[in-house]
């Protein structure tokens, strides 16, 4: 491939990226408009939250515990070198709350619920269900897309909080049960290190942003997927890839800007 072709290729990717970004923005605006205008679809929304939550519940609890345990183990091994193992609660708590909780929850929820959302909407496109809705004078963005995107946004902080809770529990298990740190020391170190406004609210806000991102990307990919089985599977895969990368990028940006 000559240099001209390479530049051409690059230009094509750049154009496509900008094109997709523009479409995504319009799509987001359509979702917001659908949410703001009647009818308010409470039942569909509650069902969507239930779907997202139930799909991700077990994986969140198990992963949270495991991450808390390994964090505690690693933290102990490092801290003990400096004779600072009393601060284990602070280390586990701060890393879980400020960073690992929201990020890992978002990545896990992307793999589980995000891909499922993209596949479900993609299948509805492929089987003309969305066109069927349009012909019944029902806006598919209003009925299908907006509730799912909102549900993902709302569920993410809840799932993240759950992840963190189980992580703290896992950390306690290893630190106190295995490594023999005093339970009271662990808890008081945790309590004095974590600030509610800066750390906990910031963490929830981060999770909220991630939830919005995943919800938007998953529904967009599903909604614009090609009406074939290959199209549905491509939408599912690209949801996971694009959303994961976006989560990590936004994580840096949010941390740099807001300090959480």
């Amino acid at each position: 491939m000559g240099p001209a072709a390479a530049v051409q290729e690059l230009g094509w990717y750049a154009l496509r990226f900008v094109d997709q970004l523009g479409k995504l923005t319009v799509f987001a605006a359509q979702i917001l408009r659908a949410l703001a205008s009647p009818p308010v679809r409470v039942r569909v929304f509650v069902q969507a939250v239930f779907d997202v939550g139930v799909l991700s519940l077990i994986i969140i609890c198990v992963s949270g515990t495991a991450v808390g345990m390994v964090l505690s183990l690693q933290g102990y091994n490092t801290l003990v070198r400096f004779g600072a193992e009393q601060s284990l609660g602070a280390v586990v708590g701060l890393s879980l709350i400020r960073e690992l909780g929201p990020v890992l929850t978002a990545l896990l929820a992307t793999g589980r619920a995000g891909s499922a959302t993209a596949a479900e909407i993609g299948t509805m496109v492929a089987t003309e269900q969305l066109d069927g809705l349009r012909m019944m004078a029902v806006d598919p963005i209003d009925l299908v897309v907006a509730p799912k995107a909102l549900a993902m946004t709302v569920a993410m902080p809840l799932l993240s909080a759950l992840f963190i809770t189980f992580g703290l529990f896992g950390g306690y298990l290893v630190g106190v049960g295995l490594m023999g740190i005093d339970g009271g020391t662990y808890m008081s170190s945790l309590q004095s290190a974590v600030d509610f406004r800066d750390d906990v609210l910031g963490s929830l806000l981060k999770a909220l942003v991630f939830g919005g991102l995943v919800g938007l990307i998953a529904t967009f990919r599903g909604f614009t997927s090609a009406p074939t089985s290959a199209g549905v599977s491509a939408a599912t895969t690209s949801t996971v890839v694009v959303a994961s990368v976006c989560i990590l990028l936004f994580d840096y940006v949010i941390t740099a800007l807001w300090g959480v």
Binding site: T127, D131, L133, R134, M136, A137
Partner: peptide
């Protein structure tokens, strides 16, 4: 505006297109 017109239409799709 199309939704207004579509309220006058009933369409049966080749594949059914029922909500599964």
């Amino acid at each position: 505006q199309l939704y207004g017109v579509r309220k006058k239409l009933g369409m049966m799709f080749q594949g059914g297109a029922l909500l599964d």
